[in-house]
Nucleic acid binder design. Sequence first.
DNA 1: GTTCTAGAAC
DNA 2: GTTCTAGAAC
Length: 782
Amino acid sequence: MPGDPTIHHTSDLRGSDGASEGASSLVVILVGAPGSGKSTFCDDVMAAARRPWVRVCQDVVANGKQGTKSQCITSASAALEEGKSVFIDRCNLEQEQRADFVRLRKVQVDVHAVVLDLPAQLCISRSVKRTGHEGKLQGGRAAMVVNRMLQKKELPNLTEGFSRITFCQNESDVKEAVKTYSQLGPSDILSAGVFGQKNKEAKVQLGIMKFLKKIDKPDFDASGKDSTPVGNLPHDTASIQTSVTSTCSMELEKNKEDLRNSNSKCPSQRSLIGDSSMDFVHTLAFPSISTADFQFDLKLASEIIVDCVSDFLQRFDNIRLVLVDLSEKSKILSLVRERSANKHIDSSKFFTFVGDITQLHTRGNLRCNVIANAANWRLKPGGGGVNAAIFKVAGESLQIATKKCADILSPGSSVVVPLPSNSPLHSRERVTHVIHVVGPNMNPQRPNCLNNDYVEGCKVLRNAYSSLFANFASILENQSKTDSKRHVSAISSTHVEGTTITSSPDSDQMAKQEAQSNPDRNKKSKVFATSGASKDKSIVMNDNHGHTPCNENTGNLMSSASLGDAVDENRRHAKVTKRSWGAWAQALHEIALNPEKHQNVVMEKSDDYVVLNDMYPKAKKHVLVVSRLQGLDSLSDVRKEHLSLLKTMHSAGLKWTRMFLKEDASLMFRLGYHVVPSMRQLHLHVISQDFDSPRLQNKKHWNSFNTSFFRDSTDLIQEIEKHGVANINDDESLLKMELRCHRCRSAHPNIPRLKSHIALCKASLPASLLDNDRLVSASPKG
DNA sequence: GTTCTAGAAC
DNA sequence: GTTCTAGAAC
């Protein structure tokens, strides 16, 4: 072990004796300045490794070229999926730079840090001397860069989410660490904690790791009661090493399954979550999401439920999850029971329950402090089923409390609402929190259903449960913080050692405390499920993505709400609220309404539309067909009555493509609309697919034409014919997606590189563009 | 929509 | 140090 190579090294490296179901993968985040030897460390470990490793290096992640952080995350996730362990080989000197990689942690995936904290002088001299460095950082300027970076250095801390941190401060430390990791067999597990840190002053905060059950509590008394306030945890590295390699810890890691099934075997196994009295177990009761009104396939749903439950239970002790349904004959309950038994899930931690979720305590004699609601996207009472029942029993106070937390909820996400104590659900049923969840809709009788797209549906349903459980955990975490604060204050005021606080705080009080510890929680927000593999939905749930309030942007509200009676609601809503447009967004509106004043730019004019060149073309050919109908500003305003206008505009666009193709037969075109237009007045983009233009300058430009932010005119016409309204996903995070070539789908770190690539890429455009006449070219379907 | 610019990343 | 992004202002 670095710093003290002999201590605990043998016990440090332990096999799991085949007890675990599968090998645990590792994410090892290297932390160090350029020249600290990160790549060499990876190479040395991988040369002698006893498990499969993948090195993810930002300098080469994009097909051998420098890539982006999100590409690194994608690449790391892919390696983990394959059961490989991953080195994150980038500087990672600041906490923020590490955070996204720490989020790769999940069941069967631990995240470690290896800090190559070598003398700055050494790093600099190595950086200056080297040649052919992947990151092109070498020679004279290296010294300055390394110095600057080291000034910002933030050494990693367990509270960031690492289960193990190894500090290396000299070559022999590095050698030891290389040995430790290279000897790690496929199912071996390294013990948790901080190793090799010389600085005794360094604070070690273990609260979060305890919460995540990733490390043992370093100190507990013989009675097994948690008597050590966080502030009293040993800061001395040696004592941490001793505690994490105790017999109890060995058992814990050797056979997690056995220990999960028995709280009594190892006192330290008891989680410190929430209620410190052991007679109450935090319990979340939840209905099956999406399988009633939204008609999600029961078998698939049962698989997802059990998988998500199983994942979650591996992380937490002293909690219970209960799936509730009204009828004994419930198919979903029996499917879940069957699958759960097959997966050997501890039935004391997860079980099904027949009864009314609003009367579990009084009628069912089942104490559940948190219940989930299968909510609608508007978070409104009414409708039917569980949602109506919960709002009815909880009374108006739940509506008010909900309004304080969120406006709307998108499928796949959830929001926690602390239940005021005056709610009957709180006083009678002892429920302190309701978590509203929205799942995917598979019911064709409802607008915007997923049309049997079970790939997307399963993804959304998984997200819904992950979000629900993570939010349940967040309640416990907040309560745990509250308890631990109280605990500390109790000890300091009375000096009675070992006192445990058994009172459960009033939820109003707790809500206030929560608001203090998490200011965003009570912020009124829309809650959107984020898309993109790099984001961990289960971690950030109450994320306000910066969308404008509903009354300022009808379009935004409309299509983000893609469920149930969203369309009707928006029609009503659209009548009373209109999006406001900035002065700069009025240009097309002005031209469309007064084309005679703009003869210099108008190339064609009819009663229905005008055609003009886009003032800032994003390709060789880029024209706009602008509707002249007043009040029709964007796709979200389009209804069946506009169908013929849309068709007329499409024909006009096609006419112009034919003219362009006569000039240059190699061009290919798409005709479509931006889901959220920047300029007022409905306008159709006719754009050649070369994207060869100096005006294409940023990510937003690219993604607005190369993600589902761009909707093909033909598809929209079809949708409006069928449903009377366009099915649009206006998630503006689409505009921030990684940059991918529209031909070969390769990812690129920035716009200049993407542009160099697309200038050369000879791959065909995706086959999907050949469907439904989305692509217009000189030789049809070519 | 663009332009400007601070600051992130290396 | 340079390159590039992303947010503010218009």
